[in-house]
């Protein structure tokens, strides 16, 4: 593998906030700050150095950028003011655009399919439906097992009003406007894609 800036330049240009990657000084604060840190394959810092080293495959196929929960600890602490959360999301999105994101990555599956379909359908998240969909992503057996495992948590959440067990029916007020927004966003995005191409 050779250091080659063509991938880095691609990321600097095309990935959201990607140009910030060049400013990383490899101190490691982001990795240490991340609550899910130990579960990442590559810490943000490592991803950034890999970008600079031209490791396109490894970066875009990494599951790491899908692990971010947007807690913003890293952004707050980064001594170089890198918007790490955004960079990482940008990389995830770029991987998707490039068709290199692992379709089996759970967050990817959840975000790009379950969550999206759920919210687009009504204009708001239906918590119960979303949870069910998530649990049954890997089939009936896995769904039941997962549901049983989490039932205490779920009941607790219902009790405290954190989870509405009744599925949301109908549409939000101004659904048409919501739809229009989505269409506009899609149009902007395809324009961007054309421009990049």
């Amino acid at each position: 593998m050779a250091y080659d800036l063509s991938f880095a330049r691609e990321v600097y240009k095309n990935s959201e906030m990607g140009h910030w990657i060049k400013m990383c000084m490899q101190c490691g604060v982001c990795a240490g700050s991340c609550p899910l840190g130990p579960h990442w394959e590559h810490s943000p810092r490592q991803l950034f150095q890999m970008v600079r080293a031209g490791k396109k495959e490894e970066v875009l196929k990494s599951s790491s950028m899908w692990m971010c929960t947007s807690c913003y600890n890293c952004i707050v602490r980064c001594p170089r003011h890198l918007p790490i959360t955004h960079i990482v999301h940008g990389l995830a999105r770029y991987a998707m655009e490039q068709g290199m994101a692992n379709p089996q990555q759970p967050t990817h599956r959840f975000a790009s399919k379950v969550f999206w379909e759920n919210i687009v359908a009504t204009g708001r998240v239906g918590e119960a439906g979303l949870t069910m969909k998530l649990y049954f992503l890997d089939g009936l057996g896995a769904g039941i097992r997962m549901g049983l495992e989490m039932k205490d948590v779920a009941l607790g959440m219902v009790k405290t009003g954190r989870l509405n067990p009744i599925p949301f029916r109908g549409k939000i007020k101004g659904y048409a406007g919501f739809q229009a927004m989505l269409q506009k966003a899609a149009a902007i995005e395809s324009k961007h894609k054309e421009a990049k191409a």
Binding site: Q26, C27, G28, V29, C30, A31, G32, S33, R77
Partner: peptide, 24 residues
């Protein structure tokens, strides 16, 4: 350790500080 620690916690019982970070 080549690392800028992310944070320092305190063990409330012993008052020992705990340094948290990533060894780069």
């Amino acid at each position: 350790t080549k690392s800028k620690p992310a944070r320092i916690d305190e063990d409330p019982a012993t008052k020992d500080p705990v340094v948290v970070g990533e060894d780069t």
